[in-house]
């Protein structure tokens, strides 16, 4: 396949970015999207030109590093798929593809398609943990957790922290990301102890990191490569109300 790529190029947070056009002359339908970009970069490097910077790591859809808005949709819009798991068979010969970074005030651009997602770390640092005494490994089943709670917590814990929820949100809100951690810990006995403090601290950290406010667009769930449900945002709101009343 032969493709035409419109790629966002930007030298740093203060540079004014622009779309530049590249040819991908020999794309295999079996390649992943990132492999296709690797080929483009190899050709650029051979010509001595500046390669396109983008984040990636595991390339098997579990690390949350890849982060590209493809044709206007975070991760390309295929259901429950990260960019690295998006394959070129989804495109047709002659297609023009727009490749842009996550855009949000909270995600300053490092270079081209790579953004600084420290804001998400700050939210986790504010409360995305449980405080406990360290020591020997706890005995299995010493702390009974019901099947329903365990499943619910696992569904929430699927979040890989890529930031697609922020990138797809019209308000650049990180509420889905925040709620996944709040909800996961709120249903587990280890997390219940600090539930009130956690929801307050994490939502406050999101605000301080310049993420927007959630206005229930539900775009985040559609964009999430792990299918994190907005029911967790409802859960966060419930936890917030409980903490407020207490």
């Amino acid at each position: 396949m032969k493709l035409k790529l419109h790629v966002w190029r930007q030298n740093g947070p203060n540079d004014k970015g622009r779309l530049e056009t590249y040819e991908a002359p020999d794309v295999s339908p079996d390649q992943s999207f990132l492999e296709m970009l690797d080929d483009v970069n190899q050709a650029l490097a051979k010509e001595g030109r500046d390669i396109i910077a983008f984040d990636h790591d595991c390339r098997e859809g579990i690390c949350g590093m890849c982060s590209q808005v493809i044709n206007g949709k975070a991760h390309g819009g295929q259901e429950r798929t990260t960019v690295c798991q998006l394959h070129m068979r989804e495109f047709n010969d002659g297609d023009e593809i727009y490749i842009e970074p996550w855009k949000a005030k909270a995600f300053p651009i490092i270079k081209d398609l790579a953004v600084d997602r420290t804001g998400l770390e700050k939210i986790i640092q504010a409360g995305g943990y449980t405080s406990c005494h360290t020591g020997g490994v706890a005995d299995g089943n010493a702390l009974p957790i019901g099947k329903e709670a365990a499943d619910y917590a696992m569904d929430a814990a699927e979040c890989i922290g890529c930031g697609a929820c922020v990138a797809s949100c019209p308000n650049s809100s990180a509420m889905l990301f925040t709620s996944a951690k709040v909800a996961q810990l709120a249903v587990l006995p280890q997390g219940k102890v600090e539930a009130h403090r956690r929801v307050m601290a994490m939502t406050e950290a999101a605000k301080e990191s310049d993420f927007g406010n959630c206005t229930n667009h539900y775009e985040c769930q559609a964009a999430c490569p792990k299918g994190i449900d907005v029911k967790f945002i409802a859960k966060l709101n419930r936890e917030y109300l409980k903490a407020l009343i207490k």
């Binding site: 855009k103 949000a104 019209p170 927007g212 559609a222």
Partner: peptide, 15 residues
């Protein structure tokens, strides 16, 4: 203010 510059291409899926 949380989105000072939008992407050139924006396609909403749900809202």
């Amino acid at each position: 203010a949380a989105t000072p510059e939008a992407n050139v291409q924006v396609k909403r899926q749900k809202t």
